[in-house]
Computed example of a mutant assay.
Amino acid sequence: MTEVLDNISTIGTNHDIQSSHIAPNSALPCSDSLWALPGSAIDEWSIGQYRYSSSFALCIILSVTELHKIHQFLQTPCDMNDLEKMYEWQTGAQRIDESLTMWREDFVAAVFRLINAESSHEMEPYVVLTNCVLNTAVITLFQARSPCPAGIDKTTEPWSYATTRCVYACENMAHKIRRMSEDETRNCNPHLLYSIFVAARFYIVYSKALDADVPINLHSLAFALRTASVRWPLARCCETVIRTAVAEHRTPVETSSLPKEFYDLRYSSVEILDILLTWTQNCPPGMGICDIGTENTE
C-alpha cells in the first residue's frame, strides 16, 4: 500500500521511487461478493501476469507496475535542443504510451468481468480512480511537449502526438467525472481531486496557448471540485485556482494574479502544488479559499 500511495501521489516529480513489483502469485484484495461465487475467479482472471478479483486490485496493479515506468522515464535527463536526443525521448514516450493503451484495453475488459460477476456498476469508486489516474499519467508524460501560451519560455516546438494524447486523456476523464453522482463526487477518494486538477489545468493552459475559449468539459471538472469541497479542503483550493484562471483567461500570463508556474507545463501539477496552496491562502478577497462556500450552489 505504501508503494501504491507513493506512485499515485508523485507522478511527475523527482521523488525517488524504488523499483516496484508484485509477485505473480500475490493474493491481492478480493471483492466480498466474489467469495460467494462457485469456482475460483482469482485463478481465472488476470492482467498480464497479475491476477485480480476486485477493482481495488486493478488500481494496485496499475500503480505499482505501469506508473513506475513513467517515474523512471521522466527522471532521465534529456537535452531537447539535441535533435537526436529529442527523437530518442519521443520514441521512448510513445513506447510507454502504447503500454498504457494496452493496459487500458485490458482494464476495460477486466471491469466488465467484475460488473458481470458482481452486478455492480461502471462507476464503482476504484474503477473511476484507476481510470483517472491512468489519464493523469498520460497527461503528465506528454504535457511539456504541448503548445505553451505567450509569456512562457518555449524550449522546444510542440509535438502534435503529445498534444493529441493529452486532449484525449482530458476528454476521457471529464466523461467519467460527469457520470458520477453528486454523492459519489462528494465522497470521492482524495487522489481523484489531483487527477481532476491536472486535467483542468491542461485544458486552461492549452486553450490559452491557442487563444481559444476554454472547453465545455472544463466546467464539469470545476463543478466536481466544488462538490468535493464539501468534504475536502484541497478541492476548495483547486477550485479557487481553476475558477481564477478561467476568469483571467484573456489576461496575459505576465499580469495574471496566479503564479506563472501554473501556466508552464514543464512543471507537473504536483511540483507546483505548494506554490498554488500558498497563493490560495493569500489571494485577494472574493476568490480566496475562505470565500468558497461549503454547499454546492451551482
Rank of each mutant, 00 (worst) to 15 (best):
W159I: 00
Y52R: 08
Y87N: 14
N116K: 13
A199K: 08
D79C: 04
L37W: 11
R201S: 03
I22A: 04
P24W: 07
D106C: 13
Y87G: 11
L225C: 06
Q72R: 05
V198A: 10
R179I: 01
I289Y: 09
E171V: 07
I292S: 07
D32K: 13
D211C: 11
H121P: 03
V167P: 07
T10S: 15
H71P: 05
Y126Q: 05
L28R: 01
C283N: 03
S220D: 14
L74S: 06
W35T: 11
R266G: 06
D183G: 01
A117T: 12
Q18P: 01
T91E: 15
S257Y: 03
W35D: 06
V205A: 10
K260N: 15
S120G: 13
P233G: 08
L192K: 06
V127K: 08
D264H: 08
T294P: 00
A199L: 02
I11P: 01
V138P: 00
R165I: 13
H21C: 04
A57L: 02
K208A: 08
S160F: 08
D291I: 07
H191T: 03
V214P: 10
L193T: 04
L129E: 10
A57R: 01
A41D: 04
M287K: 14
V167Y: 09
W159Y: 02
E254W: 08
P233C: 02
L276Q: 05
V127Y: 02
M86A: 14
E124N: 02
V198H: 04
I177K: 03
F223D: 15
H191R: 08
L74W: 12
T244C: 10
I292N: 00
T294F: 09
T155W: 13
G288Q: 07
A228N: 01
P147K: 10
L129Y: 06
S63K: 03
I292F: 11
N187Y: 10
E118N: 11
I275N: 14
A117C: 02
I17N: 08
V167R: 10
L62H: 04
R226Y: 09
Y52E: 00
G92A: 13
V4C: 02
D106I: 02
T255S: 13
A36C: 00
N217C: 10
S256C: 04
T136E: 09
V205T: 14
G286V: 12
L62N: 08
A144C: 14
V270R: 15
L258T: 07
H15E: 13
R226P: 01
N116S: 07
P215F: 00
V133C: 03
A212V: 07
Y206P: 07
R201F: 05
S220M: 01
